[in-house]
Measured scan of single mutants.
Amino acid sequence: MATGGRRGAAAAPLLVAVAALLLGAAGHLYPGEVCPGMDIRNNLTRLHELENCSVIEGHLQILLMFKTRPEDFRDLSFPKLIMITDYLLLFRVYGLESLKDLFPNLTVIRGSRLFFNYALVIFEMVHLKELGLYNLMNITRGSVRIEKNNELCYLATIDWSRILDSVEDNYIVLNKDDNEECGDICPGTAKGKTNCPATVINGQFVERCWTHSHCQKVCPTICKSHGCTAEGLCCHSECLGNCSQPDDPTKCVACRNFYLDGRCVETCPPPYYHFQDWRCVNFSFCQDLHHKCKNSRRQGCHQYVIHNNKCIPECPSGYTMNSSNLLCTPCLGPCPKVCHLLEGEKTIDSVTSAQELRGCTVINGSLIINIRGGNNLAAELEANLGLIEEISGYLKIRRSYALVSLSFFRKLRLIRGETLEIGNYSFYALDNQNLRQLWDWSKHNLTITQGKLFFHYNPKLCLSEIHKMEEVSGTKGRQERNDIALKTNGDQASCENELLKFSYIRTSFDKI
């Protein structure tokens, strides 16, 4: 039985969820670079991206490699990797027998973001014989899940209580170790020597080791999670996991709180800001991140802002960003909400898709409305799209047979046209069989910064309504002859009103 693990408890099935942008060198404390989270699957090609990484700022997932063999891993080693800020997950990587050479110096898994409450997941690794993470000293947050690894031993010899604050939620089941077939031998045991430290858990006094050649490092209890030197002297209180010299914040392997210019500090002093819960960055760093993602459509890219001495992905609820200094300031009234469309555009074809934009005031991208039916549609669209004030790209209304009016965009005031449909149009209306009105132009103002209007096959939309939009939106004169079809717009509506004058002759039985 794995020490510190839980057996036999019912657990939810383990679901495996399925960018080499360097964020800056980590400095003297770390020998390499800070790398983003990685999802490495199918083959070993991307694994080489770990070569210079000291910190993975995010998670590391290595999974679904069915053609790899043990010899493929023999020359692979990433000794610079010290810390993973989120979680480490391995799933069905064939041929991998140990992690001792792959990650010989991995010391800390912070667990800032977890995989279903777990910071370390080893699942269905069919050839893994031992973990071998002999320098792993601290899992700051989260638990361990090690399950269905039929060859995995050296679990009962690990004292997880020396690595985690609590072992109650560890789930370590259905491994070879369960069948008591392992016969784990710690260093020196074969020669009758006791080389590794022994600890007591559940009444068992057991030597602690990761492999037959690597003991588990056990520091004096007084050192807590700070770690200790090879001689057993406690590291500085700002260290986490390990250090090369005692009581020196510049000799830590990793930091308990924050890293700044080669030393570990309790908090980031001005003019620095907390970033990702582990390091200090200056304003320029946060500003660069903001600008890199301002026009990016890459998933996970955030326009970072500053709030409460932190550089964070977005302002919290009730705050909006001051564009001059990136500071989050309290909103006066309802907060603006910028919604970034991942692929640059979004099609609204149902109430469900409209709900995804609920509360958005600025759309960074283009909207395509293609709704053919739905219950209580006008009210639903207004509830979900009615706060949109600005669209950076274009607005396209296409084959939306259920629409009679666009009044559900009740606050839309600006279409920038930074991206144009077919390279020309910022407003595009095609084949809307029941569209009769755009907006009530006596109450609604709309500016279209650039781009043209396109109207074709809107049989109940009168040309007068379209011409009014040209005047109000500032697009009059931009359109070419064929942009607004004269014969297919309003051709099934009563669009022309003329005053009919009647004269009559009164007659009676005795007068003409």
Results as ranks from 00 to 15, higher is better:
28 H>D: 08
28 H>S: 12
29 L>E: 10
30 Y>P: 10
33 E>L: 13
34 V>A: 07
35 C>W: 02
35 C>K: 01
36 P>Y: 13
37 G>I: 03
37 G>F: 02
37 G>K: 12
42 N>K: 00
43 N>Y: 09
45 T>I: 07
46 R>A: 06
46 R>S: 11
46 R>C: 11
47 L>W: 00
50 L>V: 06
51 E>V: 13
51 E>L: 07
53 C>P: 00
54 S>R: 03
54 S>E: 08
57 E>Q: 15
59 H>I: 02
60 L>D: 01
62 I>G: 01
63 L>E: 01
66 F>N: 00
69 R>D: 01
71 E>L: 04
72 D>M: 15
72 D>L: 03
73 F>L: 01
73 F>V: 02
75 D>Q: 09
76 L>E: 06
77 S>D: 03
77 S>V: 07
79 P>W: 06
80 K>V: 07
81 L>R: 00
82 I>G: 03
82 I>A: 10
84 I>E: 00
85 T>A: 10
86 D>N: 11
90 L>K: 01
92 R>T: 00
94 Y>I: 04
94 Y>F: 03
95 G>P: 00
96 L>N: 00
96 L>T: 02
97 E>H: 14
98 S>L: 00
99 L>W: 02
99 L>P: 00
99 L>R: 00
99 L>N: 00
99 L>C: 06
100 K>A: 12
102 L>M: 13
105 N>M: 07
106 L>A: 00
107 T>S: 12
108 V>N: 15
108 V>I: 14
108 V>R: 04
109 I>K: 00
109 I>P: 00
110 R>W: 04
114 L>G: 00
114 L>N: 01
115 F>G: 00
118 Y>L: 00
119 A>I: 02
119 A>F: 01
121 V>M: 00
121 V>F: 00
122 I>C: 07
124 E>F: 00
124 E>Q: 02
128 L>E: 00
129 K>S: 06
130 E>P: 00
133 L>Y: 01
134 Y>G: 08
134 Y>R: 12
135 N>E: 01
135 N>H: 08
138 N>G: 05
139 I>F: 01
139 I>P: 01
141 R>H: 04
143 S>A: 12
143 S>Y: 06
144 V>Q: 00
144 V>P: 03
144 V>W: 00
145 R>M: 03
146 I>N: 04
147 E>T: 01
148 K>P: 04
149 N>L: 00
150 N>I: 14
150 N>Y: 14
152 L>S: 03
152 L>M: 06
153 C>S: 13
155 L>T: 09
157 T>H: 07
163 I>V: 08
163 I>K: 00
165 D>T: 12
167 V>D: 03
168 E>F: 08
169 D>P: 14
170 N>P: 06
171 Y>H: 07
171 Y>L: 05
171 Y>F: 05
173 V>H: 15
174 L>I: 08
176 K>V: 05
176 K>E: 03
178 D>K: 10
179 N>G: 12
180 E>I: 08
182 C>F: 04
185 I>D: 05
185 I>N: 10
186 C>R: 00
186 C>P: 00
186 C>F: 02
187 P>Q: 03
188 G>I: 11
190 A>V: 10
192 G>Q: 12
193 K>N: 11
195 N>G: 11
196 C>D: 00
197 P>H: 08
198 A>H: 09
200 V>R: 10
201 I>A: 09
202 N>G: 14
203 G>F: 05
203 G>C: 06
204 Q>F: 13
206 V>L: 15
209 C>G: 08
210 W>Y: 04
211 T>N: 02
212 H>C: 05
213 S>F: 14
213 S>E: 09
214 H>C: 08
216 Q>G: 05
216 Q>K: 02
216 Q>W: 02
217 K>G: 02
219 C>K: 01
220 P>H: 08
223 C>F: 11
223 C>A: 02
224 K>G: 11
224 K>V: 07
224 K>Y: 11
225 S>E: 06
226 H>K: 06
226 H>M: 14
227 G>F: 05
229 T>Y: 01
231 E>T: 10
235 C>V: 00
236 H>V: 03
239 C>L: 00
240 L>V: 07
241 G>N: 01
245 Q>E: 13
248 D>I: 06
248 D>A: 09
249 P>W: 06
251 K>S: 07
253 V>S: 13
254 A>S: 07
257 N>S: 11
259 Y>V: 07
261 D>W: 03
263 R>E: 12
264 C>Y: 02
264 C>G: 00
264 C>S: 04
265 V>Q: 07
266 E>V: 05
266 E>S: 15
269 P>W: 07
273 Y>I: 06
275 F>E: 02
276 Q>D: 14
276 Q>N: 11
280 C>M: 00
281 V>I: 07
283 F>T: 04
284 S>A: 12
284 S>K: 02
285 F>W: 05
285 F>S: 03
287 Q>K: 06
297 R>Q: 09
297 R>I: 08
298 R>K: 07
299 Q>D: 02
300 G>R: 13
301 C>R: 06
301 C>I: 00
302 H>R: 10
302 H>L: 07
303 Q>M: 13
303 Q>V: 04
304 Y>M: 07
305 V>Q: 03
307 H>N: 13
309 N>D: 05
317 S>A: 06
321 M>T: 10
321 M>R: 11
323 S>C: 08
324 S>L: 04
325 N>Q: 11
326 L>E: 03
327 L>T: 10
329 T>S: 08
331 C>L: 02
331 C>G: 05
333 G>S: 15
333 G>W: 15
333 G>R: 15
335 C>H: 06
336 P>E: 07
336 P>L: 12
336 P>H: 15
